[in-house]
Design a protein around this nucleic acid. Structure first.
Length: 193
DNA sequence: AACACGATGGACT
DNA sequence: GTCCATCGTGTTA
């Protein structure tokens, strides 16, 4: 069951929480979302929409439920899902549901939690690049986000790699992860709610 | 036109 | 722990 576009028409923090446990599918590859970060809008000094509308961030000012994929450090393609405001949720880690052999191939033969814990690794496992930016994940075909079981517990902590943001945004616990799984990046920064 | 740097990850000491 | 690949983007001139 694909999540409807209305799912994304909310505050990015709410969407982020509800994305935990949901499923990402592209062809034979299925991933369960285990870790996310909310980038909540232009007022959030860590959110890419803070600089206004640009060619790169254009899709975030458009339709909620679209993918926002951008190149980070010239190497990694990071997957976000556009919400309202305009804002987005970064997918930081997943655990495999299907297509393990394809994932391992795309990840240089690696397996285990370290192979999918980190946003660049998720992008690699799904073979994403910037041409996927703007793709509607609420429609059938290509990359889809489907219903999935909510986690029993949730862990929270500050977002990773945004030391440049204002302190109130930098320190806010807007990184969320499923409890009870090893498929999470930088678990040291997380605590129970 | 030039420049600094980033929502990272992998190799290495 | 350190180093650094690699390039699009935003800023400054």
């Amino acid at each position: 069951m694909i999540l409807p576009s209305a799912f994304y028409q909310r505050d990015a923090l709410e969407v982020a929480r509800d994305l935990l446990g949901k499923e990402l599918w592209r062809g034979e590859v299925g991933l369960r979302i285990t870790e996310v970060e909310a980038y909540r809008g232009p007022w959030d000094t860590a959110c890419h929409t803070k600089a206004g509308r640009t060619k790169r961030t254009e899709v975030m000012f458009g339709e909620a439920g679209c993918a926002y994929v951008y190149l980070c450090y010239g190497i990694h393609h990071l997957l976000n899902l556009v919400t309202r405001d305009p804002a987005a949720v970064l997918i930081r880690a997943c655990e495999p549901l299907a297509g393990a052999h394809i994932i391992a191939q795309r990840r240089g033969g690696k397996a285990g939690p370290a192979s999918l814990a980190g946003p660049g690794k998720v992008g690699a496992a799904l073979l994403l690049d910037t041409t996927w930016s703007g793709h509607r994940v609420f429609e059938q075909g290509g990359l889809e986000v489907r219903e999935g079981a909510r986690p029993e517990t949730v862990r929270v902590g500050p977002r990773v790699g945004i030391g440049y943001a204002r302190a109130e945004h930098r320190d806010a616990a807007w990184r969320l992860a499923c409890g009870g799984t090893k498929w999470v990046s930088a678990p040291k920064g997380l605590r129970p709610e």
